[in-house]
């Protein structure tokens, strides 16, 4: 019995002797980069050992250095991933030269920007979905997907829909439009992240165009001839489209004051010259005023003579007018004189 115990202990001891200690002493400490899992040994090579037993010496050296590296890795914080304990590697210290440049971060798409702003996170969905119709697990997307619309051999016509409308065609159209919209958005994302200038897509059709949309599409259509709309006839009252394309170059706020004054004076002159020099309305007014002044003068004379043919009702307003019109009547006389001159 004792012999068996001894032999087991001996075997154990022999086995242990074949393992080396985890502690390794080095004259100069190794330069360890855990991020890249690299250790650099700066100790000089023992020349005598190297020449006599090259391979064994290198093996030992490699083993010792690997041990030091693993010791360092054991010191790192750990985490559990799928039942396995792994070390979390720190940032890489040594920069490793590479053939191709590091790929740049992809610019965010418009949706990604929006999702980030609204704090929307991507959620993983299972690939396989239960399809109740066929009682089977089916892929969510693609060939033979769950709830495949193509399987439908009949479609319900909604109450509000036109009974002669082809519902299959309608569905197909809607699908195609969704695909096209997605493609357009993809291209827009590409265009947005390109450096150079990219021609716009113009006006895309909408179901319910607003006034602005109609105006812009009219302007676009007018330009879309071989002559860029130069020889197109326009309506007499048609105004040129505003805020389309051409950008007004903003003037500096404080430019040359005298130049600005000159400019505004020339505009003022133009504005003034647009008016007719002979103001017909004014002339007619003057003429009427003259005639009235004459006739009133006659009337006054008549009253002074003491004609009693006038009715009382007419007499009152003249009195009333006299009361308020002391200034006014003076004005009239002035006007009359002016007219004569």
């Amino acid at each position: 019995m004792a012999a068996i115990v001894e032999s087991v202990l001996q075997a154990e001891a022999e086995k242990n002797a074949s393992y080396k200690s985890t502690e390794v002493d080095k004259a100069i400490e190794l330069d360890i980069d855990e991020g890249n899992l690299v250790a650099v040994d700066l100790n000089p090579i023992n020349g005598k050992h190297y020449r006599s037993k090259c391979q064994t010496y290198l093996n030992h050296l490699a083993r010792d250095n690997a041990q030091i590296l693993f010791n360092a890795i054991w010191q790192l914080p750990t985490k559990r991933v799928d039942e396995a304990i792994v070390a979390v590697l720190p940032e890489k210290k040594t920069s490793v030269p590479r053939e191709k440049p590091v790929p740049k971060d992809q610019p965010m798409t418009r949706w990604e920007q929006y999702a980030k702003l609204k704090n929307i996170h991507k959620r993983k969905k299972e690939t396989m979905v239960w399809d109740d119709a066929v009682k089977e697990w089916r892929p969510r997307f693609g060939y033979k997907k769950a709830g495949d619309e193509k399987r439908d051999w009949m479609l319900e016509v909604p109450q509000s829909a036109d009974p002669y409308e082809d519902q299959f065609e309608k569905r197909g159209k809607a699908k195609n439009e969704r695909v096209a919209k997605n493609e357009l958005q993809r291209l827009r994302n590409v265009a947005r992240n390109m450096k150079g200038k990219i021609p716009g897509v113009g006006l895309t059709p909408t179901d319910a165009p607003d006034v602005d949309h109609v105006k812009r599409s009219l302007a676009q259509a007018q330009k879309s001839t071989a002559s860029l709309g130069r020889f197109d006839q326009k309506l007499s009252h048609e105004k040129p489209a505003r805020n389309l394309g051409k950008k007004r170059k903003a003037e500096l706020s404080s430019t040359d004051a005298s130049a600005e004054k000159k400019r505004s004076l020339s505009i003022l002159e133009k504005v003034q010259s647009n008016r007719p020099t002979l103001d017909t309305a004014k002339a007619v007014n003057q003429l009427m005023a003259n005639e009235e002044a004459k006739s009133e003068g006659k009337a006054e004379k008549g009253q002074r003579k003491g004609r009693k043919g006038r009715s009382e009702s007419k007499g009152d307003p003249t009195k009333g007018r006299g009361g308020k019109g002391s200034k006014k009547s003076m004005g009239k006389r002035k006007g009359g004189k002016g007219g004569k001159k």
């Binding site: 007004r248 706020s253 400019r263 505004s264 505009i267 504005v271």
Partner: peptide, 14 residues
């Protein structure tokens, strides 16, 4: 704050 354009000046002066 900017100077008026010719068009704006015209409308304003009128």
């Amino acid at each position: 704050m900017r100077p008026l354009t010719d068009e704006e000046t015209k409308i304003f002066f009128e």
